Amino acid sequence: MISDHPHCFLCKHSLPEWYDAIAARSEIVAFKRGQVLFTEGEPASHFYFLHGGTIKVHKQWGAAKDLIIKFAAPGDVLGHRGMGKEQHFPVTATALEAGSACRISTEFFLSSLKVNNGLAISMMMLYAGELQEAEHKMRNMVHMDVKGRIAEALLTIRQVFGTDAGGNINNLLTKQDIASYAGTTYETLFKVLNEWGQEGIVAVSGKDIRIEKEKKLKGFILY
């Protein structure tokens, strides 16, 4: 596991003496695009340490809408949001592309924390970082207008997924996904992208989105 997946969060932050225990108590699970790893409301029985692929972490928002909380990439942890008093997953994790992850039980993860101080500290820093990010997103939802949220969403998505040779965002997301990440509706996203397209701020062709005037796009964002 260590040589094949050098960026695995669990192995990276555990003592070498703990590797045999990890090998005995973990399993590598493969997933396909569109597969759900766990669903909001289910008992939080497992942790996932992502080895490959990209995952969207999303939450029910209103009657029939989703809010995308974050994107997980190789090296990230999934399932930790279920830790707490009720021990249920507060979010859903869905694969945007095929990949694999190391899966362990919650019980073994707690045992690992007791043995590995480095892992415990790294998890504490992970929670602190995600809390800051959640506060940032909450502030944006309250104080930033919809154009600012869409602008920040496009820049973040480009940072996460990169661009192709033509400068288009390597987009694994649908327009609905982008709207969900920006905390808006598909109709509003469509309207704003059309407006920005006419102004030359972005270029949109089907699923392809290319940022043409980054400085102007950043001007919509409240820092």
Rank of each mutant, 00 (worst) to 15 (best):
F9T: 01
G219V: 09
K218V: 07
A165C: 03
K70T: 12
E199N: 09
P74W: 03
V142C: 05
A165M: 09
Q198M: 13
A179C: 07
F161H: 12
A128K: 11
E17P: 00
S105P: 12
W196A: 11
R81L: 10
T188S: 12
G162I: 12
S45I: 02
D66M: 03
H5T: 05
E42M: 10
L126T: 10
H13M: 00
A165T: 06
P90S: 07
E152T: 12
E40V: 02
L131V: 06
D208W: 02
A21C: 05
F89A: 03
F89G: 03
D177A: 09
H80M: 06
P90K: 09
I221E: 07
A179P: 10
E97M: 08
L67R: 14
G99M: 07
F109N: 04
S105Y: 04
A30F: 09
S3Y: 09
K175I: 01
V36C: 12
S180T: 00
K216A: 15
Y19W: 03
T92H: 05
F47H: 08
P16I: 00
P6Q: 00
M125N: 04
H143T: 13
I104Y: 05
H58E: 10
E214G: 05
H5W: 12
H46T: 11
N117I: 00
I209P: 10
E187V: 09
V160S: 09
E152A: 14
A153L: 03
E152W: 06
I22N: 09
M123K: 01
G75F: 02
E195T: 14
R81C: 01
E40N: 07
G82E: 05
G219L: 13
Q132N: 10
A63P: 02
E133Y: 06
K137I: 08
D66S: 12
C102P: 01
T106N: 04
F9S: 03
P90Q: 09
A64S: 15
P90C: 08
W61M: 02
H143F: 15
K59S: 13
N194M: 05
K85C: 00
R210F: 08
R158I: 04
S105F: 04
S100T: 14
F108K: 04
K114H: 13
A134M: 15
K114E: 15
H58L: 10
V36L: 11
Q198N: 15
P16Q: 01
F9I: 02
Y223W: 07
